[in-house]
Amino acid sequence: MKQLKNFGEFESLRQELKVKEAENEKKVRIYIAMATCSIASGSAKVLEYFKEEMPKQPVEFVIKPTGCLGLCHSEPTVEVVLPGSGPVVFGKVDTKRAKLIIDEYIKNGKLIDGVIEEN
């Protein structure tokens, strides 16, 4: 990132990034927890899988490795936000479940088992 020299430059970068973020909302967003606990339970493989498989799908998407949502009991967790819908968090995701998430939820909007309800 280039050096921000004053408040003005910061503010315009901020607005620019907000616009970009708003654009992302038109895409399928996939957040993959990559904290110590998630990685220990296998999230790196899940991240790789999405990175490999999503470009083959006929949808626009963003994939983000993130920190964790605190759902240690269900790691690895993957949050998927379809354009216009609320976030859905899938727990205990391995590559098999990742495939189901893509085939059922991302492509067809059909929920699969193992969605975590946040209390």
Binding site: L13, K18, E21, K64
Partner: peptide, 19 residues
Amino acid sequence: ALRNCGHIDPEDLSDYIAR
């Protein structure tokens, strides 16, 4: 305190600034 955890890429400053 956990507002961004799970919602941004912690290794990307742009993500943080956007929020």
